[in-house]
Each structure stands twice: as C-alpha cells, then as structure tokens.
Design a protein around this nucleic acid. Sequence first.
DNA 1: TGAAATTAGATGCAAATGCATATAATTTGA
DNA 2: TCAAATTATATGCATTTGCATCTAATTTCA
Lengths: 157, 157
Amino acid sequence: MSKAPHVRTAAATWESLFRAQVAVMRRLNEAPAFRQVGVSHKVSVKEYDVLFTLSRCPEGWLRLHEINDRVLLSQSSLSRLVERLQNRGLIERQTAPDDGRGILIRLTPEGRAVQKEIGRAHVRDIAAVVGPALSEDEMADLMRLTEKLRQGLGHPE
Amino acid sequence: MSKAPHVRTAAATWESLFRAQVAVMRRLNEAPAFRQVGVSHKVSVKEYDVLFTLSRCPEGWLRLHEINDRVLLSQSSLSRLVERLQNRGLIERQTAPDDGRGILIRLTPEGRAVQKEIGRAHVRDIAAVVGPALSEDEMADLMRLTEKLRQGLGHPE
DNA sequence: TGAAATTAGATGCAAATGCATATAATTTGA
DNA sequence: TCAAATTATATGCATTTGCATCTAATTTCA
C-alpha cells in the first residue's frame, strides 16, 4: 500500500517534465536559431544536437553509438543524419583504429563554425524562453534534479 | 553585466532537462507498454499521447488544435495521425457545431479501453524508470518546477 | 456590411524516420 | 583456437513527418 502513491507521483512527475519539454521545444523550434534568422546555415534541432555533442569533445572524435546515447533517434536514423552532415561538409569520419567495425566522427572547421554560430543564437533563444519562467535558484534546483534523474534511471520490466 | 550568467544558467538548465527527457523517453520507448508486451494493441508514444490527452477530457470532445498544443507534432502530422487513429476505430470525429472549419475528436469506447490498458502498463514503466532516481520529495519539487516552467515561458525574438 | 485578413484543417510531395535485416569486425567460451 | 554469439554500422523499404499550399469558414474593421 505504500508503493501506489509513489507510482502515481512518478507518473505525474514525468508527465509534467514531458509537457514542459514539449512546450519549450516547440518555442525553440520556432525561434531565430532554427528559423535561420540571423544565421547563415539551416540546421534542424536534431542536426544541431549532434553538432553540439561533437563540439563538447573538442580534442577528438566520437563513436557513432556514443552520439546515439545522447540523441533521441534510432541507430539507422542517426547513421543517415551523420551521412547528411558529412555531405554538407560539417563533419568528417574515420574508421576507428582500434575497432574495424566502428567509425569516428568529428566536426570539420566549418562544422565547428556553424555550431558556434547557431549555438550563440540558440542560447539566446533558450534564455528568452526559459529565463522568464524561473529564478536563478529555481533553475539551479531544476538542473540538479534533472541531472540526478538522468543519472539514477531504473530499468523497466 | 548581470544578464550573461543568467543566460548561461538558462542554457545549462534546458540542456539538463532535455538530456533527462531523452534518457527517460528512450527507456520508455523500449519498455513493455510500447513494446506491446502484455498489451493487445500496438500504439506509438505519439499516438498514445493523443489518446491520453483525449482521455483527460472524459465528457467531451477536443479540437484538433487543442491537441496540437500538447504534442510535439506539426499540424499536418497530427492531422494524419488522427486520421490513422480514426481508421483504427480508436477515435471519432465530428465537425465543430459552432465553427464549421473545425473538427472535434473524442475516444471511441474501444479507444478508451486501449488507452486504459496501455496507460496502466505505461505508468508501471514510468515508475520503474523514474522511481529509482528520485525521492518522493524530489519528484514533488521537480513537478512543481517543470509546471512553473511550462506556465511561465517567454517568447523569443 | 462586405472585402481583406485570419484561422482550422487537409493534402501533395519530398525528406526523415524506424524496422528488419545485411555486412563486417570483435569477443566469448567450450 | 575456432565456431557461435555479440557488437557496430549500413541499407532496403514502408511509414511518418514537415513544408508549402489549398480550401473553407470565421473574424475584422473601414
């Protein structure tokens, strides 16, 4: 009899988190960075997410499946998204030296420049969307809780 | 000179929220409810989200654009998703009596039954994924903050 | 009031996505 | 050690998605 309320709390919490994410994402999709307002390249949110992930690994290369852990895309979709980014000259590939099955990805100089340019506009958009809703302290709390959530996830079934 | 840190905090907060959402959603996608384990219907997360939204409005009907506010889908994609749900007999439509442009949607009895069945499994999945990560109090805090976030969003540009 | 602007939803079409599966490399274990 | 299982990525193909646009209905306001 003590589990049921916890189950309901978890469901309500996820529902609230998910709706907030949908609402924020919808606005960001319509915001300057991804409407190509004041930026010179057209990049979708998912494409940007890959560029951003790569930008956080400045020295080196990332494996495809490492990127896949951070993005909500199937393996095959990511494979093709990366292919498109390569065709546009924003990333480059290399077969993994220590594992012939794998490939390594990194930003090209142009890809890095594009990520930075869009990133700056995106950060402004985020501040404009999220900033008005929460105080600095609330943001810190929210960050801490979502970080803890991500790190503590359980396994269903 | 006091705005820059706030901008960075907002960006970091959104990043953390978004990554948590991706991580949770990935697990939920692979969990029993949407793997059709122990449930008799195959419904995608987005389809379920529409059924769930409709289930929260038990007496009546919802306008298409009202549903669209809650789901991360373009208007045209939702239009077709709803068409598919109708073809499967899970929802029914009616032109809006007070506005000839609009249509009203509601669950059929079967749609309601399917939502309930999947919903029960989904709630179990959520509890299994989110439950281990946070205490009851932390979930309550997270719910409060995401609710406040959703309600206080600003407009970019 | 009535023409122009706006809003709701549908649809053609190209692009993106996911599932199932293929290929190739690595790891495991009898 | 080598056959079987596993892992990493790619690809064929059907489905889903979004953009642009269309139609129809409503609202605005001169």
